[in-house]
Amino acid sequence: MFSAVYIEEAVRDQAQVKAILDRLPELPQISIDQYGELFNRNRQNFRMQKQLPSLILAHKTGRRILPAPSGYGFESTRNGRGYYFSHMLNCIYDCRYCFLQGMFRSANYVLFVNYEDFQNDIETTISKSPAGSVFYSGYDCDSLALEPVSRFCSFILPLFETHNEHILEIRTKSTQTRFLLEREPLPNCIVAMSFSPKRHSERWEHKVPSVEKRLESLVRLQQAGWPVALRFEPVIAEPNVQRLYQELFELVFTELDPSCLHSVSLGEFRLPVDFYKKMVRLYPQEPLLAKEMQSKSGMITMANHSESLIPELERALLAYIKPANYYRCA
């Protein structure tokens, strides 16, 4: 899974770090001063590194809890505020559409091990926020994919048990949900699974569990009483994509109980222009990135698809769910 573990000297003696290293006994350990000297250096090849990435254990300084970008989540429907945090940078999956490829110079995984600081910052933010505020985990990473190593979500869940007027969204494509099934569900912790049509997933979601496996995990969580949510994004326009989504919706809503879903969202494929350009340099032969795109206000979206695509998918979706449970991810 990793080629080595790099450890910031300042965190080496932390209990969290020792526990993580115990889970990775075979790996070479290399001391570093500060994760940026490795992660942010020039002349790295993200694509090459992605073949054999390393894990970096580091201390997160600066702001750990940030306001969620407008339209990212469902907080506006709950009269709350939205925040996000990333206990990790980068993802063990390799989705060809993912913005992380364009955002970071390195494909190594940075795991911030000062979990207590995240906990304290969330508590401070909670104290200043109206009830119904939402904390999104998994913005710069997948929330659960590395849980067996990090145990971050296991650490942070009890905080939301005591603050049940606020919501935690664990966004993921991972099936690492055992630790959730082994404990009592929390009504204010939502597991939001991302899905693309099977054909898209096979083409572009490398190393990601299959649509069926993800669905299986989500069904188990729902049956165990966890609130679950569906994130159909990014929608990648191409001829007959409506049919692919129709099939996906049918599959998903046959397995899951739509009446118990926390929320469902759709979101278009979009990227900051600079990220897109970097991704093209990394993958010049990738058909997805070779499709006709359009640039508007610094963002790249797919060109040549009907303006009515998302509304059409919304109509198809609303045949299964209540409008109150739906939002469009901007």
Partner: peptide
């Protein structure tokens, strides 16, 4: 080498561990 330190400056550089055949690394 997986870490190279200049004794003169104390600065370190890090070759990437991307050559899996030879699992013999060191500072």
């Amino acid at each position: 080498a997986n870490k190279i330190v200049s004794r003169r400056s104390g600065e370190a550089v890090f070759p990437t561990l991307i050559l899996p055949a030879l699992q013999k690394f060191g500072e």
